[in-house]
Nucleic acid binder design. Structure first.
Length: 484
RNA sequence: GGCCCCGUGGUCAAGAGGCCUAAGACACCGCCCUUUCACGGCGGCUACUCGGGUUCGAAUCCCGACGGGGUCACCA
């Protein structure tokens, strides 16, 4: 059996769209699963859109996600170059070959003429389709225009009758009436190939066996097939992928800041969580497993389990995956990753990051939520004494006053400020006073944190804060309770 | 609008004519655990878009409607 070769062919826009990333993922998984090759090709024929450093974004994202290509611009291969702009001289001869065989023709219509005809068609409520006007030019007329240097494009000569069909591995048998096929431009006026043409030529020249790409190409595929057939080339297997949506009616978009890989990385999502989740939007392993490493994905991946229906990207589920991966990760790595987020609000505050990280790791869902969770350590937030009321803990402002008055001397008496001593001393004092743990610890935690939810309990927070600050906050709490 | 695709709970999804009074996960709600939250445990809520067929029997097959998406560039 022939070696499977898939490719990911992004345009260097400077950003990696999540839909594109998922396409890359599936291409990678399929190639690896089949023991084949995964090729990276950069489609930069549109020079106007050139963005500095954009190819590096593609390289970094793919590598960062663990998808290493077997052939590509930076590592070479037997079918290079892998950057389309470096291949530009290659396409014209192929187009001319099609002109000779009658599968394409020169077109001298100007953009203005075309726009006019398009507008006229639309005015009549019709769909504009190139009318093959230039197909009927005589050889002499064509040669004369060519000799005179009249600008031209080369168009595909698509059939107008019958129908074209092909089999898609996901969508099954696809059939389209030929009269809906437009004579698409193959070579632009500037001599450069259109994306549509370059794609076919490159895929063939690079020996691509399976073309896996977004659904948007589903209906233009017949035109590509016509090209393959005109050249007498083998048509690749097609695997079109359903769209990744933001909600039922919208795609993930740049404007909403929810479309790019970097948007999520910046917020504090882990690449392994992103990849794991993305793999499951539009595909499933057929059983209940949800957590997969890249190797495990390769092992279980099967194109037949790809879904046809579009999938909505659910940030909550992604967050759940992220939380899972954060909990699983090595503590030292967590500490390293969380430190910059601590720094945003705790820099210079003399807080023990290591201990705080221990308390925070299993409570971290997404890193960008960390600052708000630990900010109270830097500065006591203003809070309402109502926080001292908690039914289950059997506390209210009165109980809280008693509790804090009980705790104040106890804490002042703690010489060796460490968690064990703190814990034992505090618990003993509560027992001696005959109070409930919750009735004392709840008010204490509120007084020193100023908020309802905190990472860790009263003892841990008191230790993190240090004796001086803890006592200062207890006094502050007492003062608030007096006024209440 | 033409052509094409899709349609199981709020979301991802299993389901390929009887195993479906439809799995699992996320989210949500309740209870338990707990010095808060989180974690964990237990339980709950919510779905086959609709209408016709075919069949002894349909979420599964067919037709239609409706809904959503894609595509109709010298952009990729």
């Amino acid at each position: 059996m022939k070696e499977v070769r898939t490719r990911f062919a992004p345009s260097p826009t400077g950003f990696m769209h999540l839909g594109g990333l998922r396409t890359a993922l599936y291409n990678y998984l399929f190639a690896k699963k089949m023991g084949g090759k995964f090729i990276l090709r950069i489609e930069d024929t549109d020079q106007e859109r050139f963005v500095e450093g954009a190819t590096e974004v593609i390289y970094d994202t793919l590598r960062g996600c663990g998808m290493n290509w077997d052939e590509g611009p930076d590592i070479g291969g037997d079918y290079g170059p892998y950057i389309q702009s470096e291949r530009k001289s290659l396409y014209l001869p192929y187009a001319q070959q099609l002109v000779k065989s009658g599968h394409a023709y020169y077109c001298f219509c100007t953009r203005e003429e075309l726009d006019g005809r398009r507008a006229a068609a639309e005015a009549k409520g019709e769909v504009f389709k190139y009318d093959k006007h230039c197909l009927h030019l005589s050889p002499e007329e064509i040669q004369a225009k060519l000799d005179a240097g009249v600008p031209y494009v080369i168009r595909q000569n698509a059939p107008t009758e019958g129908e074209s069909s092909y089999d898609d591995l996901v969508f099954g048998h696809m059939s389209f009436p030929n009269d809906t096929l437009d004579d698409m431009v193959l070579i632009k006026q500037d001599g450069m190939p259109t994306y549509n043409f370059a794609n076919v030529i490159d895929d063939h020249l690079m020996g691509i066996t399976h073309v896996m790409r977004g659904l948007e190409y589903l209906s233009s595929t017949p035109k590509y097939n016509l090209l393959y057939e005109a050249f007498g080339w083998e048509v690749p297997q097609y695997i079109h992928l359903p769209t990744v949506m933001r909600d039922a009616t919208h795609k993930l978009s740049k404007r909403d800041g929810d479309a790019y890989y970097s948007d999520y990385v910046d917020k504090g999502y882990l690449t392994e969580a992103l990849i794991n989740y993305l793999a499951l939007v539009g595909w499933n392993p057929g059983d209940d497993r949800e957590f997969f490493t890249m190797d495990e994905l390769i092992d279980v991946f099967d194109v037949h389990r790809l879904n046809k229906a579009p999938g909505i990207f659910d940030v909550d589920k992604l967050t759940w995956f992220n939380h899972h991966y954060i909990c699983q990760m090595d503590f030292e790595r967590y500490l390293e990753l969380v430190t910059p987020w601590f720094d945003k609000v705790l820099a210079g505050k003399n807080i023990d990051y290591r201990r705080l990280a221990q308390l925070m790791q299993e409570r971290t869902e997404v890193f960008n939520r960390v600052p708000d969770m630990v900010r109270f350590l830097a500065e006591l937030p203003d809070y309402d004494v109502e926080l001292y009321t908690h039914k289950k803990m059997k506390t209210n402002p009165d109980v809280a006053r008693t509790a804090l008055n009980l705790m104040k001397p106890v804490l002042e008496g703690v010489e060796d400020w460490n968690e064990t001593t703190l814990h034992d001393t505090v618990m003993a004092a509560i027992a001696d006073a005959g109070m409930k743990n919750g009735a004392v610890l709840w008010p204490l935690r509120i007084a020193i944190s100023g908020q309802q939810n905190t990472p860790g309990g009263a003892i841990e927070i008191a230790w993190l804060l240090g004796k001086e600050e803890t006592l200062r906050r207890v006094d502050d709490g007492l003062k608030r309770l007096e006024n209440a």
